[in-house]
Write a protein that binds this DNA or RNA. Structure first.
Length: 480
DNA sequence: TGAAATGTTGGGGCG
DNA sequence: ACGCCCCAACATTTC
């Protein structure tokens, strides 16, 4: 082989379009070796639902790369070691990757970069994940933003990192003899025995094409209802792009640009477009928080929350996980999560508030469950959002903002259709009682074929009392 | 990107 | 006609 190859290390950027690292590799004109490394020892290794997605996403990426002309190499082990040995083995001249933002991952990348450079390898890294790098969006006085609204204003003003997307690659040249690869199937990323992913598989299409389809569907059919309808779990007005974004099958820049194209065509109102993009920008904000706060996934940003009188309530946690709290909107959300790997955002806030403020279970327990069960589990979003609900994060919801699961249900699922779908044992209950079955007269329950405490649980806690208790705890840490 | 408690206002019933 | 009370509706405050 005359020419020394260029390696592209794929991580959470599993796409061929507008992928700066992949494009840079192709620009060299050298044979391209794309690699994905499964590193089981890495901090925050993906949860089970994410691994299901990862399998399909990798398989889709491998297909796209193969069609373009290159073979995706699978290897497992400590990522720095694997990459260094691949460089040695192939005598690679270049290594490219798109950056990560969690301290423990940044450290690995930084060390690897300097090691490779010391060995004479050209390493270049890029922004393949965010609208803007964290250090590009700074307050007037020079630090990172800690409040969302000014952050969003600054980001809008600055605009996205690239105005023009890099096109989908149709041709990449790989080496004549590609390096050895493990088999994706041998990684056992898919569940067996039991296979709990059947409904997840019916709900989602992992991969770059699936991401494109989802974006087009949203832009054509739903975005104009987004601003008013996005809070309705019984409707389909959200983009559902989160897992695709999480794995980088699509980037926020592509979304930004597609939305602006639709606006320019007059197909999408400014209000709807900006509302949606501001939600996409929350993701950038979360990555900022993660980048500047090493402990974001583990420790409250507001340190006094470490002293909050949390309870160790195993039964409560179990009921919450299984969707058996006796509060229909909470249970519907938790079961939607379990069955489909995803939960509507409004309901995420409701179930999180319930775990933290009604059950007084530490937010990290909820974060861990979401990490394992969400197909869109994203370290920055997950950590920042749990801290937001708990009231201990940056620009957080105040602690005393406690959701009432009944009134939230009545407000955002007024007919009870969302509850009916995911809590089928309540499906015959009239809308009037569906968010508070314990208030239904005996005759109504009988008519609906419900025996509280048997076919559906009684509330595991009295919300009004729980609210008082949570506020008491807040007083404690405030005075401390 | 709350909810509950408390305060204010104004219309209607009624003596 | 008038004052008084009740209470719904709305606004403000508090957690």
């Amino acid at each position: 082989m005359a020419e020394r190859p260029a390696i592209v290390w794929f991580r959470n950027d599993l796409r061929t379009e507008d992928n700066p690292a992949l494009h840079a590799a192709r620009e060299t004109g050298a044979p391209v070796i794309p690699i994905y490394i499964l590193d089981k020892d890495i901090a925050h290794f993906p949860g089970a639902a994410s691994l299901w997605w990862l399998h399909h996403s990798l398989s889709s990426l491998a297909g796209d790369l193969k069609n373009a002309g290159a073979k995706l190499i699978y290897r497992s082990g400590k990522s720095a070691d694997v990459l260094k040995s691949l460089v040695k083995e192939t005598n690679a001249e270049h290594v490219f990757w798109n950056r990560r933002y969690y301290a423990k991952h940044v450290e690995i990348d930084k060390d690897l970069k300097s090691d490779l450079k010391a060995g004479g390898v050209a390493v270049e890294t890029f922004n393949g994940t965010l609208l803007r790098e964290p250090w590009e969006v700074e307050t007037a006085s020079g630090g990172p933003y800690r409040v969302y609204t000014p952050f969003w204003k600054a980001l809008k003003q600055l605009g996205p990192a690239r105005a023009h997307m890099r096109p989908n690659l149709r041709k990449i040249v790989g080496p004549a003899n590609p390096p050895k690869s493990e088999k994706l199937a041998s990684w056992n990323l898919l569940p067996v025995n039991p296979d709990w992913a059947t409904e997840i598989a019916e709900t989602w299409s992992p991969g770059e094409q699936g991401a494109r389809d989802r974006l087009n569907h949203f832009l054509n059919d739903n975005i104009n209802d987004y601003a008013d309808g996005r809070d309705r779990p019984d409707k389909d007005f959200t983009s559902r792009l989160s897992p695709h974004l999480s794995f980088g099958e699509i980037g926020p820049l592509q979304i930004w640009s597609a939305v602006h194209d639709k606006m320019a065509d007059g197909k999408v109102s400014d209000k709807a477009a900006m509302k949606f993009l501001s939600e996409v920008a929350w993701r950038d904000f979360s990555y900022n928080l993660l980048f500047y706060n090493d402990d974001l996934p583990d420790k409250p940003l507001r340190e006094n929350f470490a002293n909050y009188p949390w309870r160790d309530d195993r039964d409560g946690l179990k009921a919450w996980r299984k969707g058996e709290t006796g509060y229909p909107i909470v249970d519907a959300g938790m079961r939607q999560l379990w069955r489909t790997g995803w939960m509507h955002n409004r309901v995420r806030m409701i179930v999180a508030s319930f775990l933290i403020k009604d059950l007084l279970i530490p937010w990290q327990k909820g974060e861990a469950w979401f990490w394992d069960t969400l197909v869109d589990a994203d370290l920055a979003n997950n950590s920042a959002s749990w801290q937001w609900v708990a009231g201990c994060g940056a620009d957080a919801s105040p602690y005393f903002r406690i959701f009432n699961p009944v009134s939230q249900g009545e407000k955002f699922d007024p007919e009870g259709q969302y509850v009916r779908e995911f809590v089928p044992e309540l499906k015959n209950l009239p809308a009037k009682y569906i968010h508070a079955p314990w208030k239904a007269p005996e005759s109504v329950l009988e008519e609906a074929d419900i025996v509280l405490g048997k076919s559906y649980p009684n509330p595991i806690i009295d919300h009004a009392k729980a609210r008082e208790r949570a506020l008491e705890g807040y007083k404690e840490i405030k005075s401390a």
